[in-house]
């Protein structure tokens, strides 16, 4: 059953049409990787799913319920959006941890702000600690972001995104801001999430990783979905000429 259904999403920034008629669906427990060159619209697509951008056209449905409809302003009211965006979690390229909070506080802040009953805070904290432990950061709970390496910061950010138990976890080039030495630890965590059947959308430039971890791959170019299919198929036997060119350039590097 499709947990996420995206239909006909379009987005324009001024004169440039950055997304054109984007449609895809994602089944529960599956991982979708989005690849493509810079400026192809991958990040904008993720930002649309997370309500950081408002699409000009199209609908987004989660579990057969329309949560966004470009034609229906009622789905775009601030208070509604605040609830609906919780269907999605987002891990940013630049981590965006809150510098004044410890790793644990970063993970638990949003949950505590949502929970008026302070009696439930210990449970939220417990869950935060468990998430950090899953990220291999049990001993870093009390550290502030500046005391952590980039890879550790990104893992805290993943724990933070998981804390509100989103239906779909989105990653926006999660390793692009990291040294090559540090990408491994973050990819390992994402890989283990995939093994636990977390529903994910990963925008990435790591082709081998996308092939191994994702079930499906979407290749985007110029705001369009050029090719879409089984991950191994798209990477190893691309059908479209444009996809072949793109992948060939990657193999050269």
């Amino acid at each position: 059953m499709a947990i996420l259904d995206v239909k006909g999403i379009g987005k324009r920034f001024g004169a440039t049409q950055v997304l054109k008629n984007i449609s895809f669906s994602l089944n529960e427990g599956q991982a979708l990787a989005i690849i493509g060159s810079s400026g192809s619209g991958k990040t904008t697509l993720l930002r649309c799913l997370n309500f950081l951008e408002t699409p000009d056209a199209g609908t987004i449905s989660v579990r057969d319920q329309i949560i966004f409809d470009a034609a229906d302003p009622a789905t775009q009211r601030e208070s509604e959006v605040r609830q609906k965006r919780l269907h999605f979690g987002l891990v940013f390229q630049g981590f965006n941890l809150f510098p004044q909070y410890t790793a644990l506080e970063n993970v638990t802040l949003a949950g505590r702000l949502r929970e008026k009953d302070r009696g439930k805070w210990p449970a939220i904290e417990q869950q935060g600690l468990e998430l950090l432990a899953r990220m291999g950061l049990a001993d870093r709970a009390k550290h502030y972001p500046y005391q952590l390496s980039g890879g550790q910061q990104q893992r805290v950010a993943i724990a933070r995104a998981l804390a509100l138990q989103p239906d779909v976890l989105c990653f926006d080039e999660p390793t692009s801001a990291l040294d090559p030495e540090l990408t491994g630890e973050v990819l390992k965590v994402i890989r283990s999430l995939a093994e636990q059947r977390t529903t994910m959308i990963i925008v990435t430039h790591e082709m081998a990783f996308a092939r191994d971890v994702a079930d499906q791959i979407i290749f985007m170019d110029g705001g369009l979905i050029m090719e879409q299919g089984d991950a191994r198929q798209v990477i190893e036997h691309p059908r479209e000429e444009r996809t072949k060119q793109f992948l060939a350039r990657y193999q050269e590097n």
């Binding site: 997370n50 309500f51 950081l52 605040r82 609830q83 965006r85 919780l86 999605f88 979690g89 987002l90 940013f92 630049g94 965006n96 941890l97 809150f98 802040l109 949003a110 702000l113 949502r114 933070r160 995104a161 509100l164």
Partner: peptide, 12 residues
């Protein structure tokens, strides 16, 4: 990014 991180976590 700080504001956006708060927004995607459903903060007002």
């Amino acid at each position: 990014g700080q504001r956006e991180a708060g927004e995607v976590l459903g903060m007002t």
